[in-house]
């Protein structure tokens, strides 16, 4: 009993008080493009990028492909690219993830319907289809005492039958494609898909793999894209709260 009290005492309060304003110190998040010109015909960032996430003239970064490896920022001779500690980068559209000098373009517009149906309770079913366990661990972290996503009525559930949204991680391997479909089919309507991490959003590092199949996402377009490799739990929870139209 004394031991339990001691643990309770040292544990204290661990939850992140406000997931909207928390500051993850050192996190390499939302990129920032400085208002400086590129050196003429320079393509250094583009050729350094492992996932072809960079578009030129003008420079834009596709956060759906970006793995936040910092290669572009390191190689840029004109110091145009840098990464900030910002984590709010989920988007309700694929195009919205392509950011230029104006990062304000990344946003999630609250959906009236989703707010009405799921605004007070949203149950999620995770399916990893080639995820490396990075995204999976961060999704798990959402349930720990720090992030405690359950406080918003948002939780992962064990069965597709109980789920409102399917949270997809991984590039969708051939060997998981059918099981993924079955899980989604098993969910009752209304339902939607959330794509988590560069692999799920764009194929990421595995876009060129001959053993991934992306058809599922062609047929079921995600309502929410959560970029990162893996995404920070704060990126996920902020994206979802925005989608639900929650404060």
């Amino acid at each position: 009993m004394l031991k339990a009290i001691k643990v309770k005492f040292t544990q204290g309060k661990q939850y992140v008080p406000d997931v909207r304003t928390a500051k993850p110190k050192g996190f390499r998040g939302v990129p920032k493009l400085a208002d400086v010109p590129c050196e003429s015909s320079c393509t250094a960032c583009q050729s350094a990028c492992p996932t072809a996430a960079i578009l030129l003239n003008p420079v834009r970064i596709d956060l759906g492909k970006c793995i936040f490896c910092d290669e572009c920022a390191r190689i840029c001779p004109s110091k145009k690219i840098s990464f900030t500690e910002g984590y709010k980068m989920a988007s309700d559209s694929r195009e919205g993830l392509i950011v230029g000098e104006n990062v304000e373009s990344i946003r999630v517009k609250a959906s009236e319907t989703i707010h009405r149906i799921f605004g007070r309770s949203l149950k999620l079913r995770s399916v990893s289809a080639g995820g490396c366990n990075g995204c999976e661990l961060e999704l798990n972290a959402l349930g720990n005492v720090n992030f405690d996503m359950g406080r918003f009525g948002i939780e992962f559930v064990a069965s597709p039958r109980h789920a409102d949204a399917l949270v997809l991680s991984g590039p969708i391997t051939n060997n998981m494609a059918r099981s993924l479909e079955m899980a989604y089919e098993g969910m009752p309507d209304p339902k939607f898909v959330i794509a988590v991490g560069a692999c799920a959003i764009s194929g990421g590092l595995f876009e060129e793999s001959k053993v991934v199949s992306r058809e599922f996402l062609v047929r079921f377009q995600p309502k929410l894209y959560v970029p990162g490799c893996p995404p920070h739990p704060l990126t996920f929870v902020n994206g979802i709260l925005d989608l639900l139209g929650r404060p």
Binding site: G26, R28, I67, L137, P230
Partner: peptide, 15 residues
């Protein structure tokens, strides 16, 4: 993992 992030920017030591 936040210690890893403080040092290298990623909670998983990426990069």
């Amino acid at each position: 993992i936040n210690s890893s992030m403080r040092l290298c920017g990623s909670r998983f030591g990426r990069g």
